[in-house]
Amino acid sequence: MRLPLFLIAYLLAEIAAFAWVGEKVGVLGTVALVVLSTIVGLWLVQRQGLDALRKVARATPGEAPVVAWDGLCLATAGVLFAVPGFISDLAGIALLVPPVRRALLGQAQRLSGTRFTVRTAGGGMNGGGTYGSPARPTTVIDGDFVDVTKPDQGPTLPKE
């Protein structure tokens, strides 16, 4: 029930922001600002997204949750910039600022009562498992195999 109320309040706030900006700069200025903010915002997200991908490639196990959180925040900022509106653009700009992302990560960890971890299917820095956990000794067995079973001869009829 809270989500629809929040959505209605958000939409009313966006309409009020459009009206206020439209009053200050006119209709064409408002449309130009919306288009310009979308283009510039998506460009910034793309640029920072590429930086985030580079950081993922160099991330140490302890940095992996922060890098994953940064990627999530940048993706959210991209969605916010794609939505026409001034309030969503301000929220997107806020998500582009690294200290804001760190503060939100700390808040999310406090609200959930846990620290975030990134799990891998295997082969990570610690041989799989949870990033940030101490490295465990692992045994890797490398080998090849040959299938020695006989191919199926097909169905046989019972003998009478």
Rank of each mutant, 00 (worst) to 15 (best):
L90Y: 00
R47D: 08
I8T: 11
G85K: 00
L44R: 00
A57S: 08
L44N: 02
K55W: 12
L5D: 14
A75L: 09
V45I: 09
V56M: 15
R58I: 15
L36F: 09
S88D: 03
I93R: 05
R102V: 13
V31T: 14
R102M: 10
A13D: 05
L50C: 08
A103E: 00
V25E: 11
R58P: 13
P99M: 04
G29I: 08
L104D: 07
P98G: 10
V56T: 15
F81D: 00
L72F: 06
L28M: 15
L72G: 12
F6L: 15
P84A: 02
A82K: 01
V97K: 05
L5M: 14
R58L: 14
V34E: 02
D70W: 00
L42C: 12
D70N: 11
V56A: 15
F86C: 12
A57Q: 08
A52D: 07
I39W: 06
V40T: 03
T30M: 03
E63I: 07
C73D: 06
A9P: 06
T60G: 14
A9E: 01
W69V: 11
A13I: 04
A64G: 02
A19F: 07
E14D: 12
G85I: 06
L12P: 13
G71C: 08
A19G: 08
V35F: 13
T60I: 05
L12G: 15
V31R: 05
G26T: 09
T38L: 12
F18Q: 15
E14S: 04
E14I: 01
A57W: 07
L72Y: 05
T60S: 10
A75H: 03
L105E: 08
F6P: 14
Q48E: 14
G92N: 08
P98H: 04
L96T: 03
P99N: 06
A94D: 04
E23C: 12
G22D: 01
F86P: 11
A59D: 12
R101G: 06
V27G: 07
V21N: 07
K24T: 13
A82H: 03
I39D: 06
A17L: 02
K24H: 11
L105K: 07
F6C: 14
L36W: 07
W69P: 13
W20P: 13
L12F: 05
A75Q: 03
